[in-house]
Design a binder for these strands. Structure first.
Lengths: 152, 152
DNA sequence: TGCAAATTAATCGTGTACAATTTAGATATT
DNA sequence: AATATCTAAATTGTACACGATTAATTTGCA
């Protein structure tokens, strides 16, 4: 007597689909700048924190060097960022914004901001849902890997 | 005077991170069965709807053949599904579950169900958040691609 | 000082995603 | 029937994601 798992009842699936919709939304919104969503949030983090090591950037985005290294190389090729080996600690690679990136900052913020208005959602509702989703993230992160693997 | 976009204020980023946490959760929960999350939801849809064409399966998951074809080939190699060219319409490929998949159905549902309890979230809260996220998905899907590209 | 342990990026392999193209088969129209 | 149109799946190319490994440095400590 096992409860069947229906796809549309599940939070994971709702998140999975919504995240893909956002990806599509940003693909269109960012098309003028030839940026993907992961590239865009990398720039957002750099706008917010300034020059950072790959490690530090990865911590703000929950991404490791296996994802970031090729992504940052593409951003560098398109002149959004510069990667440079730190002189004080040769293990580190510092990522900094180019003049192009700094110059386009306000324009990108304004453009994305106005695209966002098409979502037509009240700020309080938006913030509430964001908080709920962040809470789910937080709860999931508390689950120990061992708890899950020991389950079997 | 442009409003700066802070990463942690944004719904898209909360969704992005929560979805990745769920991926990690399912990677561990599904490890005994050697299934990835996209493979798992493909099986869920087949458990729910029975044999389906690649097209129909893709419609339930919002995925196209570019993603599904290689994924289904892997599921077939591991004896979860069988792909067979339809006789009535030779363009179609029908996907059906194997005896292994049908035999493990209840066990998988029970196992994932008990892993899910570790999330420790009240059913009403879970359902409320799922509904909110689905609503965001729905709102995003209403935005015309032209509206966005015309924005520039 | 000298060397083991820890840290940081980069690399490699596997598995999605998705736009765009191709191929084959079905359907509609003349 | 012949051709154009449409449809389904596969293929190709680009870009993440992430676990695991490797290489180069730095740090801790005997």
């Amino acid at each position: 007597m096992v409860e069947p798992l229906r796809l549309d009842d599940q939070l994971c699936f709702a998140l999975y689909k919504a995240q893909k919709q956002f990806n599509h939304f940003y693909a269109k919104a960012l098309a003028p700048y030839q940026l993907t969503y992961p590239q865009y949030i990398s720039l957002l983090s750099l706008y917010e924190h300034g020059t950072m090591s790959v490690k530090a950037l990865g911590q703000t985005l929950d991404l490791d060097s296996g994802t970031l290294t090729p992504l940052l190389k593409r951003l560098e090729k398109d002149d959004w960022i510069v990667r440079s080996r730190s002189t004080e600690d040769e293990r580190r690679v510092d990522v900094s914004l180019t003049d192009k990136a700094l110059g386009l900052r306000d324009e990108i913020f304004a453009h994305v901001g106005s695209c966002m208005e098409l979502l037509d959602m009240a700020p309080e509702v938006y913030a509430m849902i964001r908080g709920n989703v962040a809470e789910v993230d937080s709860q999931l992160s508390k689950i120990d890997d061992e708890q899950l693997t020991a389950m079997k």
